[in-house]
Design a protein around this nucleic acid. Structure first.
Lengths: 104, 104
DNA sequence: TAAGTATTTAACTAATAGGTTAATTATATC
DNA sequence: GATATAATTAACCTATTAGTTAAATACTTA
């Protein structure tokens, strides 16, 4: 869980996850979307890999990255369950949440 | 959202939240639960405060801290909604999640 | 095989995070 | 008012993080 939250503490990495939630991308395609060197991006990708939030598959000279959604949800659930008194998995009322929404 | 995930990236701070999910505590009571100096704990508390995840109320010479659960859920929801294709709030099947559970 | 492209690794640097002890602030009590 | 307690702030140190450029690795193609 530590690795997960550590990985999620960077907005760059959260954006990578958001991109991958739409479609798989190669390392190069990901790096095009950021104003940052490829090695820097590569490090972010390896942090997400180590946290089990993404996976990479080498195809020829490319590495295709994809989201591992189950791990994302599993870790979030493990965490959030602490705050549900009944110990049940999440059941949120969207209205109550929207009320407190802050734009980022 | 950055502040929230930054705050959650520390296991000490996640433990503080877990304690506060059970009951309100003073700064001193919180620091007793960790092997760390009071100033160090105080800094963790201020990070959680800045993220809006806890609030402190001064009563006499004590400061009583409590969880602000709504902000926790709101931020998590804002984040997780990205990964729900329909854009709906979370609806997870606990069985599928348990399968991938990793102990921390 | 040589040259080009995709990606990662290595070596380095600057900024940030997380801890320490000492000092300060605010309240309580004698 | 003096002293004790709770909590935070200040000053400092070390380790980690996040970026850089240069080099290495792996694959493709002429």
């Amino acid at each position: 869980m530590n690795d997960t939250f550590q990985a999620l503490s960077s907005s760059v990495r959260r954006k990578i996850l958001a991109y991958l939630s739409k479609t798989d991308l190669t390392a190069g395609e990901i790096s095009e979307r950021f104003e940052m060197s490829k090695p820097a991006l590569s490090k972010h990708l390896s942090i997400l890999m180590n946290a089990g939030l993404i996976q990479g598959e080498k195809k020829g000279q490319y590495v295709h990255y994809s989201l591992v959604k189950e791990n994302l949800f599993a870790n979030m659930n493990d965490f959030l369950v602490n705050f549900c008194p009944q110990g049940r998995p999440l059941k949120l009322e969207s209205a109550e949440i929207k009320k407190n929404k802050k734009t980022d």
